[in-house]
Amino acid sequence: MDIFLSYCWKDDEIANKIYDYFKKNHSITLHRDKIDIKNWGSIKEYMQSLNDMEYIILIISENYLKSSNCMYEVLETIRDRKYRNKIFPVVLDKGIYNPINKAKYVRYWENEFNELKNAIDGINTQNLGNLSNDLKHYQNIASNISDFIDTVADMNNPLVDGIEEAIEQVLYDREILVAKKDDNKCEKSVNILPTVSSEPTDLEIDTYVNQCYKSGRILLKQKCHEIEKNNPMIKVKIEDVDTRNTIYHFYKNGQTTRKIKYSLGSMFGGNDSIMISNNPISSNSYNGMYQVQYRDGKIGLKTMMGFGSNGLMSVEEMVEQIWKEYIELYLRY
């Protein structure tokens, strides 16, 4: 799968972070100008390759919206009438949601157009070269930037922190990554409790619970697909609120029979627990909690509320318990 990374070089830091994250996934090729364009290669030809990409990540900032090259990539993107379904906006400048700031960007490109128009006024047509094309380019940006910003502002864009995981989750939800063999291997391996030589640090615990949360979300989705396949009366709607909260809506013969929220959080703030709630609307109501515990050289999950034994659990065992105690029981009748 080919993904194009569209960004301004002034926003290199977040571009590096996203590129490094997806570079580890060998089924994804992330195209980036600094990597793909060789010395003396054609920049415009590279930007036109957008049409061949399956998805596009756009790092949107003030620098981006005032860059001629970046806006050329936007104009290439919006040529596809269904472009909204193939873009992942990463919004660094929340000010674009303000109509006044949106108007400022339109005015900026109108000024760029007028300045260039005045500069070339009086030059013989045969001597203009590509300057007339540059003028048309500025006019196209001024004409389209407001609609483009409206489209981005209408999307429920997640926070920049954790944006890589949010993009990855969408690819899982669209079943682009789920069917890979490596994922099946991952599903079997999560049932093994990791062995550690000493009591884990806070950083190791945070890293482990994040991995458990993401693996659990994949496993829950697989179980939802499985029950839909085996029971045509049941349909499941999976709503990814953000990178730390997913709501599962279960319908039987079209009627709601169960809702649960699967979250990464804590009763006291932070992200040290996996939480289950029967009331997805409430942010403070939880019926189940799984925390990381260290015992006899191994780390695993321990249920702190609801059902289950006092022993350490693997991710797969946690998901099986969640399914049995919080979901399956309510789908039988």
Rank of each mutant, 00 (worst) to 15 (best):
G311W: 05
L193K: 05
N133K: 12
K82N: 14
Y262S: 02
S6E: 02
V319W: 06
K44R: 02
L92I: 11
E165R: 14
D183K: 11
I218R: 12
F88L: 01
N144D: 13
Y55W: 14
M305C: 06
I3P: 03
D12C: 12
S197F: 08
Q255K: 15
V196K: 02
T207C: 09
K94A: 07
S283K: 13
I57D: 04
R32M: 06
D93G: 04
P158Q: 08
L264D: 04
M53R: 10
L264V: 07
T77G: 01
S309M: 09
D240K: 15
E320N: 12
Q321G: 09
G254P: 10
L220N: 01
M318A: 07
Y19V: 05
E239L: 13
K102H: 02
K44D: 07
K102M: 12
L135M: 10
N144W: 09
R244Q: 13
L50N: 02
S198R: 14
I205P: 03
M267D: 11
A166S: 15
N127D: 15
S68P: 00
M233P: 00
S146R: 14
N127F: 13
T246R: 02
I281A: 12
N271H: 12
D173N: 14
K181W: 00
I59M: 03
Y333K: 13
G41Q: 11
G297Y: 10
I56C: 03
Q255P: 02
T246D: 02
G308Q: 08
F268V: 12
G265S: 07
K10D: 09
F88Q: 02
A119G: 08
E175T: 09
S263I: 05
D272V: 10
I176L: 07
I322L: 04
L131A: 06
W323L: 01
I43A: 02
